[in-house]
Design a protein around this nucleic acid. Sequence first.
DNA 1: GCAAAATTGGACTTGCAGGTCCATTTTTTG
DNA 2: CAAAAAATGGACCTGCAAGTCCAATTTTGC
Lengths: 202, 202
Amino acid sequence: MRGSLTAKGQATRGRIVQGAVAVLREKGVAVATLDDVLARTRTSKSQLFHYFPGGKDELLLAVAQFEADQVLDDQQPHLGCLDSWDAWYRWRDTVIARYEEQGDQCPLGSLFLQIGRNTPGARAIVIELLRQWQEHLATGIRAMQTAGHVPISLDADRTAAALLAGIQGGVSILLSTGRSSHLHAALDEGIMALRNAASAAI
Amino acid sequence: MRGSLTAKGQATRGRIVQGAVAVLREKGVAVATLDDVLARTRTSKSQLFHYFPGGKDELLLAVAQFEADQVLDDQQPHLGCLDSWDAWYRWRDTVIARYEEQGDQCPLGSLFLQIGRNTPGARAIVIELLRQWQEHLATGIRAMQTAGHVPISLDADRTAAALLAGIQGGVSILLSTGRSSHLHAALDEGIMALRNAASAAI
DNA sequence: GCAAAATTGGACTTGCAGGTCCATTTTTTG
DNA sequence: CAAAAAATGGACCTGCAAGTCCAATTTTGC
């Protein structure tokens, strides 16, 4: 078999990615080196370049994909069933808890500055993550509309986009300042906008 | 005079900062080097380290401070007189224009990932920028309350915080995806929240 | 005008991190 | 079991960018 990975190979490759994820979360992408990853995973240079011929960039991209998947997973199952006010508030609590716990690490954000937003691979990962995230929110808003809790006149996609922007900004402010008050405000105001739309329906 | 700068010295120091600003905007902090700055400003290594004994970190910090000041300046005079719906929309247009023009450069954001958010100097710059920005917004909201356009019951600081988060997120999404729709949505929804609060007043 | 201080040029050093290479061992395949 | 392919260890190379050093020049203060 040409170019295939044995079970052992897959295991090693996986270990490298996992190790890279850990190292990057601990030290930050700016200072983390390949040797750090090797030390942690007890693998050698030749192994790393064997599984990631593209070198550091390719490894970072793999880590980015992993982290991106993690973002939505961590919001489940709540993100998937935003069909009552209660569900929305439970989801809000999950988001806040996740990012408060994460502290001032930003696995994903910093990763993209390093890889470069321009590289097609990196950009595709962010775009897809944001698209899915926003889609989930929009679906939740439509569910609330169907249930009659939010007026149909509301533009679900636009509202979802604004809410997503608020979350992104809240998180990035949390990263910069260590305070989660903006994330709190963005989520609460976002949900409040849905409730107010209900009473201020045109 | 010990440790003082002559007029010539100040000019050189200023040229270095200006050159660094330009280089960082063009190439991005991840790949820009001190030699790039020297080449552009026609200065020498010894000059750079003479005026920035702390080396690259100190220079980056100076650039960060410059860029931070720029952020609010670029929103003036609109940000300073948010006392009518019209003024709010003019300000919104200014913000959108500024960041659309900037494209996918993020002088400030990327800078902090390089310097490290932890270093006290860097963190202080962001915190102060955000504080002033939010203060301006809150002042604007209070002006609208005083004028009777927005109910007093609204928490100006919290609303300003949410709006600021939305802007931050909108910008960071613009940087990642090249699309300004989220920034648009965040601003419009943020202002809409003020208007809806008016009609949905408790 | 002259001594002291500030400014400047640019060659040189240094350390490090990414990447290459090849010999050796292990696993797969038939 | 034997040949081929995959996996592994780790020494080595290389380039680059930050930072050092010193000698030369200009400016300042008195």
